[in-house]
């Protein structure tokens, strides 16, 4: 699943929050976007996922423009986002969170419930096995039956990842997956992302924190005041003088 962004622009009054940004997330790649606070990273995400409308520019998924699709339709076509402050169905257990996101359930309809209970049971068993395997993979099995609202921030980020994967997403957009997560869990999350990527799932990751991200991504884009100021392999980008001034304030 290839994501192409062309000349994306968002204006609030006189402020160009996102200014003519273009880049591509090749199929099955991990691409990162960094930048100081207020650089326009989150706005860029909302434009790509359809939560905000762009003033100018185009978003293409597998070379087809998706600018007219709603966030739901974009999610259905295989591109799912997570949130900077993780969102979960807080009163549902972790297991139920993932089960709820499994697509195409005939148990969605009340009439099926009464007239085709056998088929629903079969589907439930099948989906439940998938969810169990996913929880196992995410190392969340021990909290499977805990209400998701009670988890730690880092665990919630894993639940978000799991829910995105259960919907059948092929490209996952992570909004600051490492923010507010303890260092041990950061490595865990990074490791899961690598393993999923090895299975062909693409990632576009926004981060404020550089450490874990630079080791994860193949391409790094730097935003500052709405514009893309540098792109390339992480080592090169971080050596760039303009980047160091904008992002690191000139110090090493």
């Amino acid at each position: 699943m290839i994501l192409t962004i062309e000349g994306l622009t968002k204006v609030y009054g006189a402020l160009r929050v996102v200014d003519d940004v273009s880049f591509t997330v090749p199929s099955g790649d991990i691409v990162g976007v960094i930048g100081p606070n207020g650089a326009g990273k989150s706005t860029l995400f909302s434009l790509v996922t359809g939560f905000l409308d762009a003033a100018k520019g185009q978003v293409n998924l597998d070379r087809k423009p998706i600018g007219s699709l709603s966030p739901v339709e974009r999610a259905r076509s295989g591109m799912v986002r997570t949130f900077q402050v993780p969102r979960e169905f807080s009163h549902l257990t972790v297991w139920q969170n993932l089960m709820a996101a499994t697509p195409k359930q005939s148990g969605e309809s009340l009439t099926n419930l009464f007239f085709r209970p056998g088929r629903i049971r079969e589907e439930e068993d099948m989906n439940s096995q998938k969810v169990d395997a996913m929880l196992d993979f995410l190392r969340l099995s021990h909290v499977a039956h805990t209400p998701a609202g009670r988890l730690s921030g880092g665990q919630k980020k894993l639940v978000e990842l799991g829910r995105a994967l259960m919907t059948g997403a092929r490209l996952i957009l992570l909004d600051e997956p490492f923010a507010g997560v303890n260092p041990v869990l950061i490595e865990e999350i990074a490791e899961r992302i690598r393993e999923l990527n090895a299975q062909g799932i693409g990632f576009l990751i926004i981060e404020h924190d550089l450490g874990a991200l630079t080791r994860l991504v193949s391409t790094l884009h730097v935003m500052d005041r709405g514009r893309l100021i540098a792109s390339g392999v992480p080592a090169e980008v971080l050596a760039n003088k303009q980047v160091r001034e904008a992002y690191l304030g000139g110090t090493s």
């Binding site: 996922t49 966030p71 739901v72 999610a75 799912v80 986002r81 969102r87 979960e88 169905f89 807080s90 009163h91 549902l92 139920q96 969170n97 089960m99 709820a100 996101a101 359930q105 148990g107 969605e108 309809s109 009340l110 419930l113 629903i120 589907e123 439930e124 829910r163 919907t167």
Partner: peptide, 19 residues
């Protein structure tokens, strides 16, 4: 399954939609 989804929508309708 339908009850689970009803409770998911009750919990966070926006999140339910994009899930």
């Amino acid at each position: 399954p339908v009850g689970r989804r009803m409770r998911a929508v009750a919990d966070d309708p926006g999140l339910a939609r994009i899930s």
